[in-house]
Design a protein around this nucleic acid. Structure first.
Lengths: 222, 222
DNA sequence: GTAGGTTAAAAAATCGATTATTTTGTCTAA
DNA sequence: TTAGACAAAATAATCGATTTTTTAACCTAC
Protein backbone atom coordinates (compact mmCIF):
# COMPACT_ATOMS: atom_id res chain seq x y z
CA UNK A 1 0.00 0.00 0.00
CA UNK A 2 0.93 3.63 -0.46
CA UNK A 3 3.24 2.85 -3.29
CA UNK A 4 3.13 6.54 -4.06
CA UNK A 5 5.12 7.41 -1.05
CA UNK A 6 8.66 6.34 -1.56
CA UNK A 7 11.41 6.96 0.92
CA UNK A 8 14.15 9.30 -0.19
CA UNK A 9 17.03 7.33 -1.63
CA UNK A 10 20.08 6.55 0.43
CA UNK A 11 18.49 5.50 3.66
CA UNK A 12 18.50 1.97 4.99
CA UNK A 13 18.06 3.05 8.55
CA UNK A 14 19.05 0.94 11.52
CA UNK A 15 16.78 0.62 14.53
CA UNK A 16 19.05 2.77 16.67
CA UNK A 17 19.04 5.49 14.01
CA UNK A 18 15.26 5.57 13.92
CA UNK A 19 14.92 5.67 17.67
CA UNK A 20 17.54 8.36 18.15
CA UNK A 21 16.00 10.46 15.43
CA UNK A 22 12.61 10.16 17.06
CA UNK A 23 14.01 11.13 20.43
CA UNK A 24 15.97 14.06 19.05
CA UNK A 25 12.98 15.42 17.17
CA UNK A 26 10.73 14.76 20.16
CA UNK A 27 12.93 16.79 22.45
CA UNK A 28 14.11 14.04 24.76
CA UNK A 29 17.54 15.67 24.73
CA UNK A 30 18.32 19.20 25.79
CA UNK A 31 19.43 21.56 23.03
CA UNK A 32 23.17 22.09 23.26
CA UNK A 33 23.61 18.97 25.35
CA UNK A 34 26.68 16.88 24.81
CA UNK A 35 25.91 13.24 24.22
CA UNK A 36 27.75 10.80 26.47
CA UNK A 37 28.33 7.91 24.13
CA UNK A 38 28.86 5.31 26.82
CA UNK A 39 25.66 6.35 28.55
CA UNK A 40 23.73 6.10 25.27
CA UNK A 41 25.20 2.68 24.70
CA UNK A 42 23.66 1.43 27.91
CA UNK A 43 20.47 3.44 27.67
CA UNK A 44 19.63 2.10 24.23
CA UNK A 45 21.32 -1.26 24.69
CA UNK A 46 23.42 -1.12 21.54
CA UNK A 47 27.04 -1.66 20.72
CA UNK A 48 29.49 1.12 20.12
CA UNK A 49 29.86 0.69 16.37
CA UNK A 50 26.18 0.76 15.39
CA UNK A 51 25.69 3.66 17.77
CA UNK A 52 28.53 5.70 16.33
CA UNK A 53 27.37 5.03 12.78
CA UNK A 54 23.89 6.21 13.67
CA UNK A 55 25.29 9.34 15.29
CA UNK A 56 27.33 10.05 12.18
CA UNK A 57 24.28 9.78 9.98
CA UNK A 58 22.29 12.01 12.27
CA UNK A 59 25.06 14.59 12.15
CA UNK A 60 25.02 14.54 8.36
CA UNK A 61 21.24 14.88 8.50
CA UNK A 62 21.48 17.89 10.78
CA UNK A 63 20.02 16.53 14.00
CA UNK A 64 23.44 16.49 15.65
CA UNK A 65 26.60 18.49 15.42
CA UNK A 66 29.89 16.68 15.39
CA UNK A 67 32.85 18.52 16.84
CA UNK A 68 36.41 17.75 15.95
CA UNK A 69 37.57 15.19 18.50
CA UNK A 70 34.99 15.92 21.11
CA UNK A 71 31.98 13.91 20.18
CA UNK A 72 28.43 14.83 19.34
CA UNK A 73 26.13 17.60 20.54
CA UNK A 74 22.46 18.36 20.16
CA UNK A 75 22.29 21.53 18.03
CA UNK A 76 21.40 24.77 19.77
CA UNK A 77 18.06 26.36 19.08
CA UNK A 78 17.68 29.98 18.05
CA UNK A 79 14.93 32.36 17.07
CA UNK A 80 16.82 33.10 13.86
CA UNK A 81 16.94 29.46 12.89
CA UNK A 82 13.28 28.92 13.67
CA UNK A 83 12.40 31.85 11.42
CA UNK A 84 14.67 30.46 8.73
CA UNK A 85 13.11 27.01 8.90
CA UNK A 86 9.54 28.31 8.90
CA UNK A 87 10.18 30.55 5.93
CA UNK A 88 11.84 27.82 3.92
CA UNK A 89 9.09 25.37 4.83
CA UNK A 90 6.56 27.85 3.49
CA UNK A 91 8.38 28.16 0.20
CA UNK A 92 9.25 24.50 -0.32
CA UNK A 93 6.01 22.97 0.91
CA UNK A 94 4.02 25.54 -1.03
CA UNK A 95 5.92 24.66 -4.16
CA UNK A 96 5.52 20.95 -3.52
CA UNK A 97 1.81 21.28 -2.81
CA UNK A 98 1.18 23.07 -6.09
CA UNK A 99 3.00 20.37 -7.97
CA UNK A 100 1.24 17.61 -6.05
CA UNK A 101 -2.13 19.10 -6.89
CA UNK A 102 -1.11 19.20 -10.54
CA UNK A 103 0.07 15.59 -10.64
CA UNK A 104 -1.71 13.68 -7.88
CA UNK A 105 -4.02 10.94 -9.06
CA UNK A 106 -7.03 9.14 -7.59
CA UNK A 107 -4.89 6.95 -5.37
CA UNK A 108 -3.42 10.09 -3.88
CA UNK A 109 -6.86 11.49 -3.21
CA UNK A 110 -7.77 8.33 -1.34
CA UNK A 111 -4.50 8.28 0.60
CA UNK A 112 -5.05 11.88 1.56
CA UNK A 113 -8.55 11.32 2.85
CA UNK A 114 -7.36 8.30 4.77
CA UNK A 115 -4.41 10.14 6.32
CA UNK A 116 -6.60 13.06 7.35
CA UNK A 117 -9.17 10.73 8.85
CA UNK A 118 -6.62 8.76 10.82
CA UNK A 119 -5.15 11.99 12.13
CA UNK A 120 -8.53 13.27 13.23
CA UNK A 121 -9.37 10.03 14.99
CA UNK A 122 -6.01 9.77 16.73
CA UNK A 123 -6.02 10.00 20.50
CA UNK A 124 -3.53 12.71 21.29
CA UNK A 125 -3.21 11.65 24.91
CA UNK A 126 -1.96 8.23 23.92
CA UNK A 127 1.71 7.36 24.24
CA UNK A 128 2.66 10.96 25.04
CA UNK A 129 1.25 12.06 21.72
CA UNK A 130 3.77 10.01 19.75
CA UNK A 131 1.03 8.33 17.75
CA UNK A 132 -0.58 11.62 16.87
CA UNK A 133 2.81 13.04 15.87
CA UNK A 134 3.46 10.08 13.61
CA UNK A 135 0.13 10.49 11.86
CA UNK A 136 0.59 14.23 11.61
CA UNK A 137 3.94 13.80 9.91
CA UNK A 138 2.42 11.18 7.66
CA UNK A 139 -0.41 13.50 6.67
CA UNK A 140 1.90 16.27 5.61
CA UNK A 141 4.09 13.78 3.79
CA UNK A 142 1.10 12.40 1.89
CA UNK A 143 -0.05 15.88 0.96
CA UNK A 144 3.09 16.66 -1.03
CA UNK A 145 4.05 13.11 -2.00
CA UNK A 146 3.19 13.25 -5.72
CA UNK A 147 5.06 16.52 -6.32
CA UNK A 148 7.41 14.62 -8.58
CA UNK A 149 10.65 15.67 -6.94
CA UNK A 150 12.48 13.21 -4.74
CA UNK A 151 14.93 15.86 -3.64
CA UNK A 152 12.25 18.36 -2.73
CA UNK A 153 10.54 15.73 -0.59
CA UNK A 154 13.81 14.97 1.07
CA UNK A 155 14.44 18.59 2.00
CA UNK A 156 10.88 19.07 3.21
CA UNK A 157 11.16 16.07 5.48
CA UNK A 158 14.42 17.35 6.87
CA UNK A 159 12.94 20.78 7.57
CA UNK A 160 9.90 19.18 9.15
CA UNK A 161 12.12 17.37 11.62
CA UNK A 162 14.01 20.54 12.40
CA UNK A 163 10.80 22.50 12.83
CA UNK A 164 9.45 19.91 15.23
CA UNK A 165 12.45 20.37 17.49
CA UNK A 166 10.90 23.74 18.25
CA UNK A 167 7.22 22.88 18.05
CA UNK A 168 7.57 19.93 20.39
CA UNK A 169 9.49 21.74 23.12
CA UNK A 170 8.10 21.27 26.59
CA UNK A 171 5.34 18.89 27.66
CA UNK A 172 2.28 17.57 25.77
CA UNK A 173 0.61 19.75 23.15
CA UNK A 174 -3.15 19.84 22.53
CA UNK A 175 -2.67 23.62 22.31
CA UNK A 176 -4.75 25.09 19.54
CA UNK A 177 -5.13 21.66 18.09
CA UNK A 178 -8.68 22.13 16.89
CA UNK A 179 -7.84 25.08 14.69
CA UNK A 180 -4.86 23.37 13.10
CA UNK A 181 -6.85 20.20 12.64
CA UNK A 182 -9.58 22.08 10.83
CA UNK A 183 -6.93 23.39 8.46
CA UNK A 184 -5.83 19.86 7.72
CA UNK A 185 -9.31 19.05 6.51
CA UNK A 186 -9.59 22.27 4.56
CA UNK A 187 -6.31 21.42 2.89
CA UNK A 188 -7.70 18.08 1.79
CA UNK A 189 -10.81 19.73 0.40
CA UNK A 190 -8.84 22.27 -1.61
CA UNK A 191 -6.45 19.59 -2.83
CA UNK A 192 -9.36 17.46 -4.06
CA UNK A 193 -10.87 20.52 -5.71
CA UNK A 194 -7.46 21.09 -7.35
CA UNK A 195 -7.46 24.67 -6.24
CA UNK A 196 -3.72 25.13 -6.14
CA UNK A 197 -3.50 28.79 -5.23
CA UNK A 198 -6.07 28.58 -2.44
CA UNK A 199 -4.38 25.46 -1.12
CA UNK A 200 -1.04 27.18 -1.17
CA UNK A 201 -2.41 30.19 0.64
CA UNK A 202 -3.91 27.96 3.28
CA UNK A 203 -0.67 26.05 3.61
CA UNK A 204 1.14 29.35 4.18
CA UNK A 205 -1.31 30.15 6.92
CA UNK A 206 -1.06 26.68 8.40
CA UNK A 207 2.69 26.84 8.63
CA UNK A 208 2.45 30.33 10.06
CA UNK A 209 0.10 29.16 12.81
CA UNK A 210 2.39 26.25 13.61
CA UNK A 211 5.25 28.71 13.65
CA UNK A 212 3.48 30.79 16.26
CA UNK A 213 3.01 27.71 18.42
CA UNK A 214 6.66 26.79 17.98
CA UNK A 215 7.83 30.31 18.73
CA UNK A 216 5.76 30.54 21.88
CA UNK A 217 7.16 27.23 23.07
CA UNK A 218 10.67 28.29 22.23
CA UNK A 219 10.32 31.52 24.15
CA UNK A 220 8.77 29.87 27.18
CA UNK A 221 11.50 27.28 27.01
CA UNK A 222 14.38 29.79 27.11
CA UNK B 1 38.92 35.94 5.97
CA UNK B 2 35.58 35.28 4.37
CA UNK B 3 33.81 35.39 7.65
CA UNK B 4 30.63 35.72 5.65
CA UNK B 5 30.83 32.22 4.42
CA UNK B 6 30.08 29.87 7.22
CA UNK B 7 29.87 26.16 6.82
CA UNK B 8 26.49 24.59 7.38
CA UNK B 9 26.21 23.36 10.94
CA UNK B 10 26.73 19.74 11.77
CA UNK B 11 29.81 18.98 9.81
CA UNK B 12 33.22 18.35 11.31
CA UNK B 13 34.40 16.34 8.38
CA UNK B 14 37.21 13.84 8.56
CA UNK B 15 39.88 13.67 5.85
CA UNK B 16 38.49 10.44 4.46
CA UNK B 17 35.02 11.95 4.24
CA UNK B 18 36.29 14.92 2.26
CA UNK B 19 38.31 12.79 -0.12
CA UNK B 20 35.52 10.32 -0.73
CA UNK B 21 33.05 13.10 -1.31
CA UNK B 22 35.37 14.70 -3.83
CA UNK B 23 35.88 11.42 -5.63
CA UNK B 24 32.18 10.59 -5.68
CA UNK B 25 31.26 14.01 -7.04
CA UNK B 26 34.15 13.88 -9.49
CA UNK B 27 32.96 10.61 -10.94
CA UNK B 28 35.87 8.40 -9.90
CA UNK B 29 33.34 5.68 -9.13
CA UNK B 30 30.87 4.18 -11.56
CA UNK B 31 27.22 4.93 -10.91
CA UNK B 32 25.56 1.88 -9.43
CA UNK B 33 28.89 0.41 -8.41
CA UNK B 34 29.10 -1.50 -5.19
CA UNK B 35 31.87 -0.30 -2.93
CA UNK B 36 34.25 -2.98 -1.71
CA UNK B 37 35.04 -1.76 1.76
CA UNK B 38 38.25 -3.71 2.15
CA UNK B 39 39.53 -2.39 -1.15
CA UNK B 40 38.71 1.16 -0.13
CA UNK B 41 40.50 0.61 3.16
CA UNK B 42 43.72 -0.15 1.32
CA UNK B 43 43.22 2.33 -1.48
CA UNK B 44 42.74 5.25 0.89
CA UNK B 45 44.95 3.87 3.65
CA UNK B 46 42.43 4.23 6.45
CA UNK B 47 41.08 1.99 9.14
CA UNK B 48 37.73 0.31 8.98
CA UNK B 49 35.98 2.43 11.59
CA UNK B 50 36.76 5.88 10.17
CA UNK B 51 35.94 4.58 6.73
CA UNK B 52 32.57 3.18 7.72
CA UNK B 53 31.67 6.36 9.57
CA UNK B 54 32.50 8.40 6.50
CA UNK B 55 30.42 6.10 4.30
CA UNK B 56 27.50 6.44 6.69
CA UNK B 57 27.69 10.22 6.54
CA UNK B 58 27.90 10.15 2.77
CA UNK B 59 24.83 7.94 2.64
CA UNK B 60 22.89 10.38 4.82
CA UNK B 61 24.11 13.17 2.56
CA UNK B 62 22.90 11.36 -0.54
CA UNK B 63 26.16 10.52 -2.27
CA UNK B 64 25.79 6.84 -1.40
CA UNK B 65 22.96 4.42 -0.89
CA UNK B 66 23.14 2.02 1.99
CA UNK B 67 21.41 -1.32 1.57
CA UNK B 68 20.27 -3.44 4.42
CA UNK B 69 23.15 -5.82 5.15
CA UNK B 70 24.89 -5.49 1.84
CA UNK B 71 27.04 -2.45 2.12
CA UNK B 72 27.17 0.75 0.15
CA UNK B 73 26.51 1.59 -3.48
CA UNK B 74 27.06 4.60 -5.66
CA UNK B 75 23.58 5.89 -6.56
CA UNK B 76 22.32 5.28 -10.07
CA UNK B 77 21.96 8.20 -12.43
CA UNK B 78 18.78 8.93 -14.34
CA UNK B 79 17.46 11.50 -16.71
CA UNK B 80 14.52 12.05 -14.39
CA UNK B 81 16.76 12.81 -11.45
CA UNK B 82 18.94 15.17 -13.47
CA UNK B 83 15.83 17.09 -14.50
CA UNK B 84 14.67 17.14 -10.91
CA UNK B 85 17.99 18.45 -9.62
CA UNK B 86 18.31 21.11 -12.30
CA UNK B 87 14.80 22.37 -11.71
CA UNK B 88 15.23 22.55 -7.96
CA UNK B 89 18.61 24.22 -8.35
CA UNK B 90 16.94 26.88 -10.49
CA UNK B 91 14.32 27.54 -7.87
CA UNK B 92 16.54 27.43 -4.80
CA UNK B 93 19.55 29.24 -6.20
CA UNK B 94 17.32 31.86 -7.77
CA UNK B 95 15.64 32.42 -4.43
CA UNK B 96 18.98 32.57 -2.65
CA UNK B 97 20.48 34.95 -5.19
CA UNK B 98 17.62 37.39 -4.79
CA UNK B 99 18.04 37.36 -1.05
CA UNK B 100 21.81 37.66 -1.32
CA UNK B 101 21.48 40.70 -3.55
CA UNK B 102 19.11 42.24 -1.00
CA UNK B 103 21.40 41.61 1.98
CA UNK B 104 24.97 41.35 0.69
CA UNK B 105 27.34 44.06 1.91
CA UNK B 106 30.59 45.54 0.65
CA UNK B 107 32.63 42.60 1.89
CA UNK B 108 30.45 40.33 -0.18
CA UNK B 109 31.01 42.46 -3.26
CA UNK B 110 34.74 42.17 -2.77
CA UNK B 111 34.58 38.42 -2.15
CA UNK B 112 32.51 38.01 -5.27
CA UNK B 113 34.90 39.93 -7.49
CA UNK B 114 37.80 37.97 -6.03
CA UNK B 115 36.11 34.62 -6.55
CA UNK B 116 35.21 35.44 -10.13
CA UNK B 117 38.71 36.62 -10.85
CA UNK B 118 40.33 33.51 -9.38
CA UNK B 119 37.99 31.37 -11.41
CA UNK B 120 38.81 33.17 -14.62
CA UNK B 121 42.54 32.93 -13.99
CA UNK B 122 42.41 29.25 -13.08
CA UNK B 123 44.17 26.85 -15.38
CA UNK B 124 41.59 24.24 -16.25
CA UNK B 125 44.17 21.78 -17.49
CA UNK B 126 45.85 21.65 -14.08
CA UNK B 127 45.31 18.68 -11.80
CA UNK B 128 42.61 17.21 -14.05
CA UNK B 129 40.55 20.34 -13.58
CA UNK B 130 40.18 19.79 -9.85
CA UNK B 131 41.44 23.25 -9.06
CA UNK B 132 39.03 24.85 -11.50
CA UNK B 133 36.17 22.79 -10.06
CA UNK B 134 37.06 23.91 -6.57
CA UNK B 135 37.05 27.56 -7.56
CA UNK B 136 33.85 27.15 -9.55
CA UNK B 137 32.06 25.68 -6.57
CA UNK B 138 33.48 28.42 -4.40
CA UNK B 139 32.22 31.10 -6.80
CA UNK B 140 28.67 29.82 -6.74
CA UNK B 141 28.84 29.45 -3.00
CA UNK B 142 30.01 33.03 -2.60
CA UNK B 143 27.28 34.30 -4.87
CA UNK B 144 24.49 33.12 -2.60
CA UNK B 145 26.35 33.21 0.71
CA UNK B 146 24.61 36.23 2.27
CA UNK B 147 21.10 34.97 1.51
CA UNK B 148 20.51 34.73 5.24
CA UNK B 149 19.36 31.12 5.32
CA UNK B 150 21.73 28.47 6.59
CA UNK B 151 19.35 25.72 5.56
CA UNK B 152 18.88 27.05 2.05
CA UNK B 153 22.66 27.16 1.61
CA UNK B 154 22.92 23.63 2.85
CA UNK B 155 20.38 22.34 0.35
CA UNK B 156 21.95 24.27 -2.49
CA UNK B 157 25.35 22.79 -1.73
CA UNK B 158 23.87 19.32 -1.66
CA UNK B 159 22.14 19.81 -4.99
CA UNK B 160 25.32 21.23 -6.46
CA UNK B 161 27.20 18.07 -5.56
CA UNK B 162 24.45 15.94 -7.04
CA UNK B 163 24.35 18.00 -10.20
CA UNK B 164 28.10 17.69 -10.63
CA UNK B 165 27.81 13.91 -10.64
CA UNK B 166 26.19 14.39 -14.03
CA UNK B 167 28.10 17.41 -15.28
CA UNK B 168 31.46 15.81 -14.55
CA UNK B 169 30.79 12.50 -16.24
CA UNK B 170 33.48 11.40 -18.64
CA UNK B 171 36.89 13.00 -19.15
CA UNK B 172 38.05 16.63 -18.82
CA UNK B 173 35.62 19.45 -19.62
CA UNK B 174 36.61 22.71 -21.31
CA UNK B 175 33.41 22.28 -23.31
CA UNK B 176 31.61 25.54 -23.76
CA UNK B 177 33.63 26.97 -20.95
CA UNK B 178 33.96 30.44 -22.40
CA UNK B 179 30.23 30.99 -22.60
CA UNK B 180 29.61 29.83 -19.06
CA UNK B 181 32.56 31.85 -17.81
CA UNK B 182 31.16 34.99 -19.40
CA UNK B 183 27.96 34.38 -17.51
CA UNK B 184 29.87 34.22 -14.26
CA UNK B 185 31.16 37.71 -14.86
CA UNK B 186 27.77 38.97 -15.95
CA UNK B 187 26.33 37.56 -12.74
CA UNK B 188 28.84 39.52 -10.72
CA UNK B 189 27.99 42.70 -12.60
CA UNK B 190 24.26 42.30 -12.06
CA UNK B 191 24.81 41.42 -8.41
CA UNK B 192 26.88 44.56 -7.85
CA UNK B 193 24.23 46.59 -9.66
CA UNK B 194 21.68 44.99 -7.31
CA UNK B 195 19.50 44.05 -10.24
CA UNK B 196 17.83 41.08 -8.62
CA UNK B 197 15.40 40.11 -11.35
CA UNK B 198 17.96 40.32 -14.15
CA UNK B 199 20.42 38.39 -12.04
CA UNK B 200 17.85 35.73 -11.37
CA UNK B 201 16.97 35.46 -15.03
CA UNK B 202 20.62 35.07 -15.90
CA UNK B 203 21.06 32.48 -13.18
CA UNK B 204 18.15 30.52 -14.65
CA UNK B 205 19.85 30.60 -18.01
CA UNK B 206 23.21 29.70 -16.53
CA UNK B 207 21.83 26.65 -14.80
CA UNK B 208 19.98 25.71 -17.95
CA UNK B 209 23.17 25.85 -20.00
CA UNK B 210 24.98 23.75 -17.40
CA UNK B 211 22.06 21.38 -17.51
CA UNK B 212 22.47 20.94 -21.25
CA UNK B 213 26.13 20.13 -20.75
CA UNK B 214 25.27 17.65 -18.01
CA UNK B 215 22.51 16.06 -20.07
CA UNK B 216 24.76 15.65 -23.08
CA UNK B 217 27.40 14.01 -20.94
CA UNK B 218 24.85 11.78 -19.30
CA UNK B 219 23.48 10.61 -22.64
CA UNK B 220 26.90 10.00 -24.12
CA UNK B 221 27.80 8.15 -20.96
CA UNK B 222 24.88 5.74 -21.09
C1' DG C 1 45.10 34.71 44.83
C1' DT C 2 45.99 33.69 40.19
C1' DA C 3 48.29 32.30 35.90
C1' DG C 4 50.74 28.71 33.95
C1' DG C 5 52.09 24.17 33.72
C1' DT C 6 52.11 19.25 34.94
C1' DT C 7 49.69 14.99 35.80
C1' DA C 8 45.68 11.99 36.32
C1' DA C 9 41.15 10.79 34.87
C1' DA C 10 37.69 10.64 31.39
C1' DA C 11 36.11 10.31 26.92
C1' DA C 12 36.49 9.82 21.94
C1' DA C 13 38.38 7.56 18.15
C1' DT C 14 40.55 3.78 16.16
C1' DC C 15 42.17 -0.86 15.66
C1' DG C 16 42.23 -6.06 15.30
C1' DA C 17 39.48 -9.88 15.73
C1' DT C 18 34.94 -12.16 15.91
C1' DT C 19 30.33 -12.93 14.46
C1' DA C 20 26.53 -12.80 11.31
C1' DT C 21 24.92 -12.39 6.72
C1' DT C 22 25.09 -12.72 1.93
C1' DT C 23 26.99 -14.45 -2.16
C1' DT C 24 29.08 -18.00 -4.89
C1' DG C 25 29.94 -22.55 -6.27
C1' DT C 26 28.78 -27.39 -6.32
C1' DC C 27 26.10 -31.29 -6.12
C1' DT C 28 21.86 -33.87 -6.60
C1' DA C 29 17.29 -35.02 -8.21
C1' DA C 30 13.59 -34.32 -11.27
C1' DT D 1 19.46 -29.39 -18.69
C1' DT D 2 17.78 -27.05 -14.75
C1' DA D 3 15.78 -25.97 -10.31
C1' DG D 4 16.62 -26.48 -5.62
C1' DA D 5 19.35 -27.43 -1.60
C1' DC D 6 23.56 -27.48 0.67
C1' DA D 7 28.34 -26.11 1.71
C1' DA D 8 32.15 -23.00 1.26
C1' DA D 9 33.93 -18.53 0.51
C1' DA D 10 33.52 -13.71 0.73
C1' DT D 11 31.89 -9.69 2.70
C1' DA D 12 29.42 -6.75 6.01
C1' DA D 13 28.52 -5.68 10.64
C1' DT D 14 29.62 -5.84 15.31
C1' DC D 15 32.31 -6.41 19.42
C1' DG D 16 36.09 -5.83 22.99
C1' DA D 17 40.32 -3.80 23.70
C1' DT D 18 43.82 -0.25 22.69
C1' DT D 19 45.35 4.21 21.52
C1' DT D 20 44.82 8.99 21.26
C1' DT D 21 42.96 13.27 22.64
C1' DT D 22 40.51 16.16 25.69
C1' DT D 23 39.02 17.58 30.13
C1' DA D 24 39.66 18.13 34.97
C1' DA D 25 42.43 18.41 39.09
C1' DC D 26 46.24 19.71 41.29
C1' DC D 27 50.45 21.91 42.16
C1' DT D 28 53.92 25.45 41.88
C1' DA D 29 55.76 30.07 41.07
C1' DC D 30 54.99 34.74 40.93
Amino acid sequence: MNKHIQLPAGSASSPIYDVLRRDLVGGRFKAGEKLAINALKEQYQVGLSPLREALNKLAAYGLLVQENQRGFRVPKLSREELDDIARLRTELEGMALERAIAHGDAVWEADLLAAAHRLKRADITLDKGEEWERLHTQFHRTLVAPCGSVWLLRFIEQLHDQFDRYRRLGPKMPTIRQELDDQHHELVELALKRDASAARALMDDHIHKSYEVALARYQKHA
